[in-house]
Amino acid sequence: MTIIEPIRILLYVVGALAFVGVNAAYLVWLERKAAGRFQRRAGPTEVGPAGLLQPVADAIKLMTKQLIVPPGSDELLFRVAPVMVMAPAMMCFATIPFADSIAARNIDVGLLMIFAFGSINVMAVMLGGWSSRNKYAIISAARVVSQNVAYEIPMLLTIITMLMVAGTMNLHEIVRQQEAGFWAWNVFRLASNPLMPVTFIIFFICMLAETNRAPFDMAEAESELVAGAYTEYSGMGFGVFFMGEYANIVIGCAIATALFLGGWGSPVGALPGVWWFLAKMYFLIFSVIWIRWTFPRTQFYGLLNLSWKILIPVSLTTLVLTSIAIKIPRMF
């Protein structure tokens, strides 16, 4: 708590920034490469070996482009919106436990913090769409709000279910509870709640919808709304939105790993924990990419119906069942 603490904070800030930056850049590469494989083509190959320098080239291109602010738009909001996507995503990294000893801050209400910051993302996309003064962007902004309102609810319901099982909001604690091995992972803790896999699936679907990923990419919907809320953004304004989107995917998958898949816990015991965490997280991220390149986009009302008519009732049911399953053994 002397000179060490500021250095530690600095290191973690740099580390989180670097992690987000590298992930955003190389997830784009991974996505393009994976999409290429799904589509029987090679993906990027030209820049660097196996196209590995493609993200660098993309970044240079985006940075050298002019950021055009459309006339008549709300300039302040227009410029602030990309930042508001990116900054909360960075904040969320503060409490993610990559391993037992690798986390910026071990906060007791870590989960609460992540979801508090995670919700700002919606507002940022909405503001970006609204301030662009473009009809496609405004339609997209309206969609984003109703979509996120619809999906925030089942997501938080599943989180509450999780909390009742875990009994803590501290992500470290939650992971430590699952350390016993494969069958101790929350997704398989059928003893405390037989519907735990369902909870996980609901969480995953909601995560896809919250991060505006296909098949729920209503905000971008390039064949309907050109580029949705990002239509008027050029250069790095678009680039930051793009990075924020990937950062949010990383956050979502990291939380899913910590909450449901045992975090740094290893099923077999080999390798240090952080590699297991990353392996699980990237597996989930790959699934997200896989889903995007496999399914067509849903209809907008189909998306809302899915949430209000299926996910919310089901997650409420799991909530009730979990509370019963927890309460009944204690009654005797």
Binding site: R40, T294, P296, R297
Partner: peptide, 16 residues
């Protein structure tokens, strides 16, 4: 058409 619906991959299969 699948591109219109947001499914990108079938296009490449069809073009193949």
């Amino acid at each position: 058409f699948l591109l219109d619906l947001g499914g990108f991959t079938p296009l490449l299969y069809a073009f193949d």
